[in-house]
């Protein structure tokens, strides 16, 4: 059996990759994908805990989290599409000039 800590390390790596992506990447679509990585790292956490505790609750939480992440991305992409129609770019640097 794979010990709990392995799952947590995997989740930590995913979380760090996601966080680095959000902070460093300049393309807002990739920023959105990095957010998804963070979500998935948390999901792995929850499933691992649920397996460790031998209770179903954690797995059910994950179903809800996936739904929420889907909604989040839908709104994020909608904003990106609206933004692209107006400014024709998806790069953070080019958007910077139009702060409110």
């Amino acid at each position: 059996m794979v010990p709990l800590s392995y799952y947590l390390i995997l989740s930590l790596i995913l979380f760090s990759v996601g966080m680095a992506g959000v902070l460093l990447r300049r393309n807002i679509i990739i920023v959105l994908m990095s957010l998804e990585l963070i979500f998935n790292s948390v999901n792995i956490n929850l499933v691992a805990f649920s397996h460790h505790l031998q209770s179903m609750a954690g797995r059910i939480f994950v179903i809800f989290t996936i739904t929420i992440a889907a909604a989040e991305v839908a709104i994020g992409l909608a904003i990106i599409v609206a933004m692209y129609r107006r400014v024709k770019t998806v790069y953070v640097d080019k958007l910077r000039g139009m702060k409110g």
Partner: peptide, 22 residues
């Protein structure tokens, strides 16, 4: 159009805050 950028900024920070709570 700045509203879209303001909203997207909040979306990124708000989602990170959400995952922290999770």
């Amino acid at each position: 159009r700045e509203a879209l950028i303001a909203s997207f900024n909040y979306l990124i920070l708000g989602t990170i805050a959400g995952t922290f709570i999770l």
